[in-house]
Amino acid sequence: MDFTTYWQYSDMVTRTLFFLLLALSIISWVTGIIRILQSRKLAANVADDLSQKIQAKRSELRDADAATRRLVIEQTLLKHIGRYRFASERGLPILGTTAAIAPFIGLFGTVWGIFHALHNIGVSGQAGLGQVAGPVGEALIMTGLGIAVAIPAVVFYNL
């Protein structure tokens, strides 16, 4: 079964699920690529930026005792590291949600395709290959699409 036959055979629910999975796939790929580019840029700048922040604080704290200097520098580092961490985690909710729900959307498409197969058997009164092949193919395509959307989202999430 080629895509045009599948598309002509599918109904509105299947088409909606297809476009939903396509949109989730595009969003997760764009988010993942942007996250990789931003994390490379961030990794290149973090060490220099933190060194500059520490040097600025050290010059302010020349007259303070060692314990005070240590405390202020630790607080400065923790504050800026927290900001970098927040910046590096942008997009994770999108990827996590996509990875979590895409297989279930595909599974819903599978259930819908099997429902069509059973409905065709009920209408025709025969359990032949002609009544079952199209809807079962539809079900398998939706399962594959759900998995194909979830796997890149999980990989990008873990990168």
Rank of each mutant, 00 (worst) to 15 (best):
A117P: 06
E60M: 15
Y9K: 02
R69H: 06
I147H: 12
L95I: 03
I33G: 09
H80L: 09
M12V: 13
A127G: 15
T68N: 04
S88G: 15
N45K: 13
V123M: 09
K53D: 04
T143W: 09
A87D: 15
R62Q: 08
T5G: 07
W112F: 02
G144A: 15
T98N: 07
G146Y: 02
A87R: 13
W112P: 00
I94S: 05
G146T: 08
G130N: 14
Y9V: 00
G144R: 11
V111R: 01
D49H: 13
I27W: 03
L24C: 14
I151W: 03
R70A: 11
L118R: 03
E89K: 06
L95V: 02
H119R: 13
N120P: 08
I121R: 03
L22F: 15
F115P: 00
F104M: 10
D48C: 12
G82M: 10
L159W: 12
N45T: 13
A153C: 05
A66I: 11
M142Q: 05
V111K: 02
W29G: 04
A64L: 06
V72E: 11
S10Y: 00
R85V: 14
Q126G: 10
T5Y: 03
R35T: 06
P152M: 07
L17R: 00
G144C: 14
V111A: 07
R69A: 10
A139E: 04
L78E: 10
G146Q: 06
G106W: 01
L107Q: 04
D65F: 07
T14F: 00
G134F: 00
S25K: 05
S88K: 09
E138Y: 00
I27A: 09
K79P: 04
